[in-house]
Amino acid sequence: MSLSHDDVRKIARLARLNVSDAEVAEVADKLSSILGMVGQLQATNTAGVAPMAHPLDAAQRLRPDEVTESDARDAYQANAPQVENGLYLVPRVIE
């Protein structure tokens, strides 16, 4: 399993994660090595085995649809990089 630099750039774009030109060769090399190790799985016979999503085979618990949280906007926005009048600021999205 060998990933090209273009493969890495495509995955990085999907992950919304900047990988600089200086990093791309090393990332391609190390991801290829990880995927090579992971490739051992392909030789395993898993015919008829149900995929396991939860160690205890439990179903998602539901709760009554009731309000349980109080307003904590100020507390949460104290951690935001940029806010104004209680709104999160981002670069202009619509010109």
Partner: peptide, 22 residues
């Protein structure tokens, strides 16, 4: 956007995401 590191002077939203995470 909501918390955590934010890159300086983002050109657009995609650039903000990619560089903040990078």
């Amino acid at each position: 956007v909501r918390f955590g590191h934010r890159a300086a002077d983002p050109a657009d939203l995609l650039d903000l995401y990619e560089r903040s995470r990078g």
